[in-house]
Design a protein around this nucleic acid. Structure first.
Lengths: 132, 132
DNA sequence: TGCGTTTTTGACAATCATTATCGTTCCCAC
DNA sequence: GTGGGAACGATAATGATTGTCAAAAACGCA
């Protein structure tokens, strides 16, 4: 329960995952990222990639998306609360902010007596390039 | 490709699943529903429950939720587009409508040139009973 | 009502992302 | 440099969902 031993160690693998995420543009699955790391010659276990991604997600440093299709997708995002506008075809993602939505959600929840409110919101569409 | 043979047959199993959903209050997993059906003495296979739920979901007759934890949850809902305010602890669900959110999402997508827009939105919180 | 066709069923196996295990390796404070 | 504890990683386990395919059930039609 104490913070004393919350030592998060600095390892080669963690740095590699973090660095890779920094260069990536869109969302990628754990298995994708793992494959990319191996291609680069980084020796990292799949288990570790999963663990690291989970840790980063818990820390709020990356965002997770769970598309209907299957795997979890991860991406380094800008700080603060925001949502995603994702292309169904190519995955291109735009970050969008919607202060009005945030407050609407909070208000609705409060009206029903719900506390400790959070929400998830994703917008899907076909981006201009893929529409052609 | 033709519509000629699109016959959807009326079976005991399908009715059973549909009826059960009609009596249920909150969200339930396929396996839950399967277990309930067996308790009632209905003889229905798990595979069939999955298939039926999927069909109903495709037809828009039931809503599907994918909580972070794991299984897909199904529930008969009112018609039309709406969202859910769900209690993290007990699962109690309130249907909420947010016309403003709908139009906001559409507008944002359009501004970025995305077509064929849809979205998902869930609000999570702790309901009054569970807060105590 | 009886029959043939076609869908549907359901037991079982397969899939596949994710998680648990646990001995080994490596980081880091001292 | 060293000790102890965290992190790693190969592998097995998990578990929900989907595929398979022969047998059963529905429905159209005569």
């Amino acid at each position: 329960m104490s913070e004393s031993g919350a030592a998060v160690r600095n390892t080669r693998q963690r740095s590699a995952v973090s660095a890779l995420l920094g260069e990536m543009e869109g969302f990628h699955s754990a298995q994708d990222l793992h494959a990319m790391l191996r291609q680069r010659g980084e020796r990292v276990g799949l288990t570790t990639v999963y663990r690291t991604l989970q840790a980063l997600a818990d820390a709020g440093e990356i965002d997770v998306m769970r598309p209907p299709g299957g795997e979890h997708l991860y991406r380094r995002c800008s700080e603060g609360h925001h949502h995603h506008l994702v292309c169904r075809a190519c995955g291109r993602t735009v970050e969008v902010a919607g202060p009005a939505v945030e407050s609407w959600a909070d208000r609705v929840a409060e009206q029903h007596g719900y506390a400790d409110v959070s929400h998830t919101l994703e917008i899907f569409g076909t981006c201009p390039d893929c529409a052609r």
